[in-house]
Computed example of a mutant assay.
Amino acid sequence: MLRLWGHKNSSNVQKVLWALDELKLDFERVDAGGPFGRVKDADYLTLNPNGLVPALEDGPLVLWESHAIVRYLFARYGSPPLQPSDLGERARADAWTDWQFGTLWPPVRALLVQLLRTPAERRDQGAIEGARRAALAALGILDRELARHPWAAGEYFTLADIPLGVAAQRWYNLPLDRPALQHVDAWYGRIKRRPGFERWVDLPLT
């Protein structure tokens, strides 16, 4: 059986939990990271030398880095349309997965840290506004893409929508002003109806 190490409030762990749910895979989850510790223990470091979550065991295979794990799960256990058979479509899904990590997530994470994890008297309003503008610029790119088709990589939900959806859940639940983005808003409405998103991602922010 698959074994996933990580706590359910971690955004990176949520990506894997959602992927497992979409693929209807049985798995065991072991609490680690955050309030549960364990990640600096010698036995865990043999699984993930970075001392971070998640880590996934699939028999003798051990993987870390959430996007690598999600890609593996879809490639190993997925089938069309979840896992596109066309290599070009699959590459588009990969591109949006990388884009989430490099472009969208940094400003969203900065907002999360400032607005939820920093006491009000210590918040940097300049940093907050800069991150808000950067997140909006990134979401504008996604909005233009979603004007062309309903899901990030095309006509069907794919692995690309998972990391994007995890970031979007933070964006839509942070206490800040958000202008309407017609196509992102509609896509997020579809995302919210996915059972795996409801079960593993749409939780109170911490």
Rank of each mutant, 00 (worst) to 15 (best):
R3G: 03
G6D: 06
G6T: 05
S11T: 13
S11L: 10
E22I: 07
L23D: 05
L23S: 07
L23P: 08
K24D: 11
K24Q: 13
R29S: 14
V30K: 11
R38C: 00
V39T: 15
K40H: 10
K40E: 10
K40R: 11
D41C: 01
D43Q: 09
D43E: 11
T46R: 15
T46P: 00
N48V: 00
P49M: 05
L52K: 14
L52P: 02
D58Q: 08
P60A: 09
E65H: 06
S66P: 09
Y72C: 07
L73R: 08
R76L: 01
R76C: 07
S79L: 02
P81N: 03
L82G: 00
P84Y: 02
L87H: 15
L87Q: 15
A91W: 07
A93R: 11
Q100A: 12
L104Y: 06
V108K: 00
A110F: 00
L111T: 01
L112N: 12
V113K: 00
L115I: 08
A120H: 08
D124I: 10
D124L: 07
G126A: 14
G130Y: 06
R132K: 14
A137L: 13
A137K: 14
R144Y: 02
R144W: 07
A147T: 01
W151K: 10
A152N: 06
A153M: 04
T158F: 06
A160S: 01
A160R: 02
I162W: 03
L164Y: 03
V166F: 10
P175S: 06
L176H: 11
D177N: 09
D177G: 10
H183P: 00
V184Q: 07
D185I: 03
Y188D: 05
G189M: 00
G189S: 05
I191R: 01
G196W: 02
D202Y: 04
D202K: 12
L205P: 03
